[in-house]
Design a protein around this nucleic acid. Structure first.
Lengths: 221, 221
DNA sequence: ATGGAAACATACAACCCTGTATGGATCGGA
DNA sequence: TCCGATCCATACAGGGTTGTATGTTTCCAT
């Protein structure tokens, strides 16, 4: 199934597509949460009236389910894929870090918004929970592949994934230099082993180009 | 400053106090988030009209700031206190676990609700961020006290605290037996050391009485 | 060019939530 | 007893959001 294929951000296109609405809704979801996904607000930001929306969608719920589908298509199985083809433990962990840093393959803000949404909807919560279990299981089986005992692999997978989740939840954004100084400690804590110095510097150089600029957060009381 | 001192859940009391409103608002905040803290809803659940609310509070914002004050008075400095008086590393970590298990000293659902609230309010976010930094710093200085190097202590503090945050965020609730089987792995991952078997069983016996029953979550689309 | 569907505008009804203004009931103290 | 403060009910205004019903325009195909 196709993802968003917005032709351009040019406001000159007189006709809106269904995906234009979804794209605007995703922005609103990420920026201000589900309750900010309002037809009135979106129509204003798109420069049309609400009549347009009700031509493309049946109602607001149809838009929300479309948003969830976008999330599934975008943020699923990314980590599992990165882990299966890594030859060594060190490479796998670093590949995992790379996925979390490269926000083109994995969108943490969308992930966070959906997880936030899940706290208010039982259906969404069940879906997210399943996805989380899959991710942890993928990391756990990776650890097992390199000799870690079953429960130890599972716990280490949890710790590394949970830490990353909170990292996003608290919206921590540190400069690369600081992250670099933390790398060895993170690696030791997560794996129980020491990282190779050469591999560490190589990794840092590899991700240096993919660091995202600090995003400004919304917020008003 | 006084906390909630609701005299009883007896619906027979004809007069409501300010704390009755705060208590109901806290329940709503924990169950369904900030936007569920509505004067209309609360007044219905309390069996009065909205006129009562506007006698006790100036407006909705006054109630929200009161909620934040409740959180600060309840969930602050709990972990730091537990850590400073622990003689050994092992005791300190286990004491920390105990605090997180004992939901009378530390209310994770309230903590989670406030942190959820913070994602939509800049002011709240700043306050929560400060509190989070304090907690991590407390754990980090604890690790330093037992010989861990500065950044390693900081990262281990982050990992242990972040893991716990996600644990609450994902609302994981496992039976005690399962938790018990994870304890050694958690401890090794967090500290890099092996836990003493005797201390582990003693700890499990100690917290067995303080396990909270699984809470049912709300949620409708 | 013209009929018709696609895409959007307009207008209206219904609901929900906040805030305010004001009236009514209850209770203790002088 | 009666007066005033406390506590709550009633009523209304205002703003915001979702749907729906119905025009109006644009554009393509025949």
């Amino acid at each position: 199934m196709e993802l968003l294929s917005t032709q351009s951000d040019d406001d000159r296109q007189p006709q809106l597509t269904r995906n234009d609405w979804i794209k605007a809704a995703l922005d609103a979801l990420i920026a201000d949460g589900v309750e900010a996904v309002q037809i009135t607000t979106l129509s204003k930001s798109l420069g049309v009236t609400r009549g347009s929306f009700y031509w493309h969608f049946e109602n607001r719920n149809a838009l929300l389910t479309a948003l969830l589908e976008e999330w599934r298509a975008k943020n699923s199985d990314m980590m599992a894929e990165a882990l299966t083809k890594s030859p060594t433990l060190q490479d796998g962990i670093l590949d995992l870090f790379a996925v979390w840093v490269d926000h083109e393959k994995y969108d943490p803000s969308l992930d966070q918004a959906v997880r936030d949404w899940a706290r208010r909807s039982g259906e969404i919560r069940a879906i997210v929970e399943k996805e989380d279990n899959n991710r942890v299981a993928a990391i756990a089986s990776f650890f097992e592949r390199f000799g870690y005992e079953t429960t130890e692999a599972f716990i280490r997978a949890r710790v590394i994934y949970f830490t990353q989740l909170s990292y996003y939840q608290l919206n921590i954004d540190e400069p690369l230099a600081k992250r670099a100084s933390y790398l060895a400690a993170y690696f030791r804590c997560f794996t129980g082993q020491n990282i190779d110095d050469e591999a560490a510097t190589k990794f840092l150089h590899r991700i240096a180009s993919k660091i995202t600029p600090p995003e400004t957060l919304p917020g008003q009381t």
